[in-house]
């Protein structure tokens, strides 16, 4: 779809014909800010709104019980969010027949976020074939190992274990997270350097080959930890080593759960 008007029309039709129970999209708040809105009344589709700083990844709402209870859902998606939705399809978290994606082109220049400067999914259905290293990752890669270690240790020191990163992430969909597991407890749940280190790296590892680089974790982090750098770097590694980009094709076999004789192994030392 090319404009928000078309989205509104489609949303109205879907709701009127009762093909979906709810439309998730962006609305304009009182100030200049954009908010996620949830529309069940076809009369209210005019509230749907879209501009370049609609940065929320709305896919995270698709699995909230309050939203799911409305039956089939329609969701306004930008390129990065569409990847999330397809990722959820491929991981059996959603059925593709139960979600209607209202795709919108995003000019991805909005707010000067790193993820937007290297965006290749401006058009949700036809991603471009490039994955340039953005400035932040390049900076990390230029550091010697020890310095990299220090960089992340410093970042994670600030973590207050509020788990906002987990809550905002559409792919952190476990009902009970590993950090909440006791007997045995894998990760210390207090904001200690060791626990913080385990938590943030475990979460990053859990997202390998799954993260769609929407950058919401870093945006949600109240202490400004650059989680997006870590996740984007891992996504890039997966692409280089296994030629796999998460959320592009819901039918593609994810690299971490498939074994091939000719799998790249040169990074195992």
């Amino acid at each position: 779809m090319n404009s928000i008007h078309e989205v509104r029309e489609e949303a109205r039709k879907l709701l009127e014909e009762k093909r979906v129970g709810m439309v998730i999209g962006y609305g304009k708040g009182k100030g200049k800010k954009n908010y996620p809105i949830f529309i069940t009344d076809p009369q209210k589709v005019e509230e749907l709104h879209f501009e370049s700083d609609c940065f929320y990844n709305l896919a995270v709402y698709l699995r909230k019980p309050e939203v799911c209870s409305h039956g089939k859902l329609a969701i306004v998606v930008k390129g990065c969010d569409a990847r999330s939705v397809r990722g959820l399809f491929s991981e059996n978290q959603l059925k593709s027949e139960e979600v209607v994606m209202l795709e919108l082109k995003c000019d991805a220049k909005g707010i000067g976020r790193d993820k937007c400067t290297t965006c290749r999914v401006k058009n949700p259905l036809t991603p471009e074939e490039k994955n340039p290293i953005d400035g932040e990752i390049a900076k990390i890669l230029a550091m010697p190992m020890e310095e990299r270690f220090r960089f992340f240790a410093e970042e994670f020191k600030r973590c207050i274990r509020c788990y906002a990163c987990r809550q905002i992430c559409p792919h952190c969909f476990c009902k009970t997270c590993i950090v909440e597991k006791s007997e045995p407890q894998w990760i210390s749940s207090t904001p200690s350097p060791l626990g913080n280190w385990s938590w943030n790296f475990t979460r990053a590892f859990h997202l390998i080959g799954r993260c769609v680089e929407c950058g919401e974790c870093a945006r949600a982090c109240p202490v400004g930890i650059r989680l997006d750098i870590l996740n984007r770097y891992l996504a890039k590694s997966v692409e280089e080593k296994y030629q796999f980009i998460a959320g592009m094709d819901e039918k593609a076999a994810p690299p971490l759960t498939t074994y091939k004789q000719n799998d790249n192994q040169d990074f195992i030392r």
Partner: peptide, 13 residues
Amino acid sequence: SDRCFGCFSCEAV
């Protein structure tokens, strides 16, 4: 089955 959320990565591996 309480903790399992049905991603079926186990099935794949």
